[in-house]
Each structure stands twice: as structure tokens, then as C-alpha cells.
């Protein structure tokens, strides 16, 4: 190989960042096939909806308030079930499962030897977890709508058909709960990358969630990302005839986004030191 041709090697144009990120995301999508992470997404979205649907199907009349849309107790109770414990644990488990795909296969050295910036690999996998989390919460919301409409047919006496479907509050709730989740995902992502053992991130997630729920009402408790989804749920107004979900992001949701930003900025360097 001549000097000219070796010079061409380094002077040839590099792929644009979005091409590299697109390639990383495509690779992550392939790696997700037949994984427990995908099954968890479906299970998380469907299981709590089936519970609330069964409750309303068999005992719905006892949960209704005269003059109030049945959508209000239906959605409000469904979200309470979701955010109190399920959502933080889902975020913890999902993040660990996605990262464990690499730890179990021992593929870090293979990935890090590819001509892709390490930051891109880091961001690509984080975006994959965030995407799966959004997919799960969107699917959860879609199933809530679907089962609500199903109740208009199966249990017309509950009166779902007499009220407009609360699409706007539903969309706002999904986005705000999601904003409250990204901080948990971000923190858990760094911990899952840095420790090859499944135990460390799960233990941290459990302790963080229980601690956040315990100190939820204490000042500055919102600095802990694990309580953010529940704080979001507390901001929903379910006393009136219709459900009201404020559209502006609350302080704990901004803090959750700041956690994500911090991880994006500092995560790659820290994780590189841990992975070697």
C-alpha cells in the first residue's frame, strides 16, 4: 500500500453523525429481537390495563361519581396503579435488560472496536431504552382507550358512551409521565453500563424507588428521579366532571430532564473508565 493510498484512508469523508446514529439505532433494533425487554414492554403496557378493565367490568358502578365522566376514575386509577410502583420498576428492569444484552454476550470489545464514536454507541443505546419506554407508555395509553371503548359496548350502564374521550388530557398525561421517567432511565442506564452484574442496578432501582416513595413529601425529594412519575400523577385534577392534566412541565419533570442531560454529557467518559 502506497503512502498516497494510506493518506486517502484518513482523508476520506467520515459518515455524518446522523448516519452513524441511524446505524447504531438500526443495530440496536436487530439486537432487541426475541429479547425479554420486548416482552416486558408488552407486559407492562397490557397487565395494568387488564386489571383496571376487570375492576370496571365487574365493580365499575361502585367507582363512579354522579355527574362525573367515567373516564376520570378509569384513567386516574389506571395511572395510579402504573406510576406508584410499576413504572419506576419497569424503567429499572427495562434499562437493565437492554444493557445486559451486551454484558451477557461479552460484546463490548467488539462494539468499541468499531469505527463508530463511543458517544454515538452510548447515545444510541440510551435512545433505544427511551424509545422502548415511550412505546410502552403509548401502548398503555392506547390500550386504556381501547378498553374504555370496549366498556361502552360490554357495560353500557357505566356511561362511557355519554362522554367525550379525553384525548387531550390523555396525551398530556402520557408526555408528562414520560418526562418524569427519563431521569430514572438515564441514571439506571449509566449504572447498568458500569456494573456488569444485574444485581447492582436492580438493587439501586429498588432502593431508589422505595426511598423516593418514602420521602416524597419532603422538601427537595424531587431531586431523586424515582418519585417523579408519582409526583406527576399527583398533579392531575380528578375531582371535577372531567379530567384535567396541566400541560406545563412541573419542577420534578424538569429535574428528570436535567438528569438525562447530565448523563448525556458526563456518561460516556465515566462509563468508558468502568468498561475499560
Amino acid at each position: 500500500m502506497s503512502l498516497t493510498s494510506t493518506s486517502v484512508l484518513v482523508s476520506s469523508p467520515s459518515p455524518a453523525w446522523w448516519q452513524l446514529l441511524g446505524g447504531t439505532l438500526a443495530a440496536e433494533r436487530i439486537k432487541l429481537r426475541r429479547t425479554a425487554a420486548l416482552r416486558l414492554v408488552v407486559g407492562f403496557a397490557a397487565a395494568p390495563v387488564l386489571i383496571i378493565f376487570a375492576v370496571f367490568y365487574f365493580r365499575g358502578a361502585t367507582l363512579l361519581t354522579p355527574g362525573q365522566s367515567p373516564w376520570v376514575p378509569y384513567l386516574h386509577n389506571a395511572w395510579r396503579t402504573e406510576v406508584t410502583l410499576l413504572l419506576p420498576l419497569f424503567a429499572v428492569l427495562l434499562t437493565s435488560l437492554v444493557v445486559q444484552v451486551e454484558h451477557r454476550a461479552g460484546t463490548w470489545k467488539h462494539l468499541l472496536a468499531q469505527p463508530v464514536p463511543r458517544r454515538t454507541l452510548f447515545v444510541g443505546k440510551l435512545l433505544t431504552v427511551l424509545g422502548l419506554s415511550l412505546l410502552a407508555q403509548t401502548l398503555h395509553a392506547a390500550l386504556l382507550l381501547l378498553t374504555g371503548w370496549l366498556l361502552t359496548v360490554l357495560r353500557p350502564e357505566l356511561g362511557f358512551q355519554h362522554y367525550a374521550t379525553p384525548l387531550a388530557p390523555l396525551a398530556a398525561a402520557v408526555l408528562r409521565i414520560y418526562a418524569g421517567t427519563v431521569g430514572i432511565v438515564a441514571v439506571q442506564y449509566v449504572v447498568s453500563l458500569a456494573w456488569r452484574s444485574f444485581v447492582v442496578p436492580i438493587a439501586l432501582g429498588l432502593v431508589g424507588t422505595v426511598l423516593a416513595l418514602t420521602v416524597l413529601r419532603i422538601a427537595h425529594a424531587d431531586l431523586l428521579p424515582y418519585g417523579a412519575p408519582l409526583l406527576t400523577w399527583h398533579s392531575f385534577e380528578a375531582d371535577g366532571p372531567a379530567l384535567r392534566v396541566p400541560t406545563a412541565l412541573a419542577r420534578h419533570e424538569w429535574l428528570s430532564l436535567i438528569w438525562l442531560l447530565l448523563v448525556l454529557l458526563a456518561g460516556p467518559a465515566w462509563v468508558r473508565r468502568r468498561l475499560g
Binding site: 484512508l9 484518513v10 467520515s14 439486537k31 444484552v101 454476550a105 460484546t107 470489545k109 472496536a113 469505527p115
Partner: peptide, 17 residues
Amino acid sequence: EALLRHVGALIESPSLY
């Protein structure tokens, strides 16, 4: 990154999914 585009490697044991 520019140089690794022209390199293929197998390091230690197979790293497979």
C-alpha cells in the same frame, strides 16, 4: 475511527448475541 473503518478484528473469545 477513520483507521478502524479499514480494520476487521476478532479479539479473544467469540462475542456473539
